[in-house]
């Protein structure tokens, strides 16, 4: 039986549960108090309010999906941390037995972004990239620059630094931390979802974009298709599979930009180890959900 650790309002998890059929148990972090749980050195079990149950004797896999993005009400932080600690414990129980699917929710805590870029540049061109305080070490950068966030954390007033063009380095306050990259001029954003070595490549036109980060202009109504599938070259496929192997991932979403309008030449931007992917195939036309479900069952 698969243990799915997630949040109650998560649509991706809904789709996975429906397509998986029997044999999945869903634990929603934000509803943690509705489950009965025991976790010992010998065994563990979790039971939901209607009597559905999973325990250590029948658990075969675990998939963690965005659990901590759902907020468990007005609990005291200390209580929430206890529950989170348990979730880390049970996820590690699966990891210790080689039964955890996908990437750890803490994947980027271990590897970050710049370390991934340093590996990716063996397989793909990457933009000049640097984290700098004091604006040092940036002399080899071009005149066309962007800044972005490493952590994408919300500020106290609930704003986030998205990828933004800047006029020049001397417009930046050197007393702050900056993640700076050369800007890539491109007609296409490209994102490639990978599941169990299957690659699903999608492109999104950058023509007429207001700003440079597609996430700020995403149509959450899904009324108009924004991302369209396309075929990768054999060389890109081989490079991406080699990169994935070196990064130790079999699941995730890789972001690229095309060189101008040439989709055969891709600049690597980043790996989203737990990146969203259903938005690429909201109607399940291209088989992404089926692919993930099949992989979770292996």
């Amino acid at each position: 039986m698969l243990l799915l650790i997630t949040g109650a309002a998560d649509g991706t998890s809904d789709r996975l549960v429906v397509n998986y059929g029997d044999g999945v148990f869903r634990f929603n972090y934000d509803l943690w108090h509705q489950y009965k749980v025991v976790f010992t050195t010998e065994y563990w079990s979790i039971e939901n309010p209607v009597g559905l149950k999973i325990d250590s004797s029948e658990a075969t896999a675990c998939f963690w999906w965005k659990a901590l993005q759902y907020y468990p009400g007005n609990e005291d932080r200390a209580i929430k941390e206890e529950v989170k600690y348990f979730l880390r414990e049970i996820y590690s129980w699966f990891k210790l037995r080689g039964l955890a699917k996908g990437n750890s929710p803490y994947y980027h805590n271990d590897l970050g972004k710049i370390n991934i870029l340093s590996i990716a540049k063996k397989y793909f061109p990457i933009p000049n990239s640097a984290y700098s305080v004091g604006l040092i070490g940036l002399s080899n950068f071009s005149d066309s620059l962007i800044v972005k966030s490493l952590a994408s954390s919300q500020s106290d007033d609930k704003s986030v630094l998205m990828t933004t063009s800047i006029p020049s380095l001397d417009t930046l306050d050197p007393n702050f931390p900056w993640f700076v990259q050369d800007e890539i001029e491109s007609d296409w954003d490209v994102t490639i979802f990978m599941c169990d070595s299957r690659l699903f490549a999608f492109k999104r036109s950058r023509i007429g974009m207001d700003g440079i980060d597609w996430r700020t202009q995403q149509d959450f109504t899904f009324e108009d298709q924004e991302w369209f599938p396309f075929d990768l070259t054999e060389e890109t496929t081989d490079s991406l599979l080699s990169l994935s192997a070196e990064l130790g991932v079999e699941f995730g979403r890789f972001d690229f930009m095309a060189e101008r309008d040439d989709l055969s030449k891709l600049f690597f931007l980043e790996l989203n180890a737990s990146g969203q992917w259903v938005f690429l195939d909201i109607e399940n036309r291209y088989g992404l959900v089926d692919s993930v479900v099949s992989w979770l069952k292996t």
Partner: peptide, 11 residues
């Protein structure tokens, strides 16, 4: 949201 950007990767 929980604002736990120490986990679940990029929110």
């Amino acid at each position: 949201s929980d604002s736990d950007t120490d986990s679940d990767a990029d929110p």
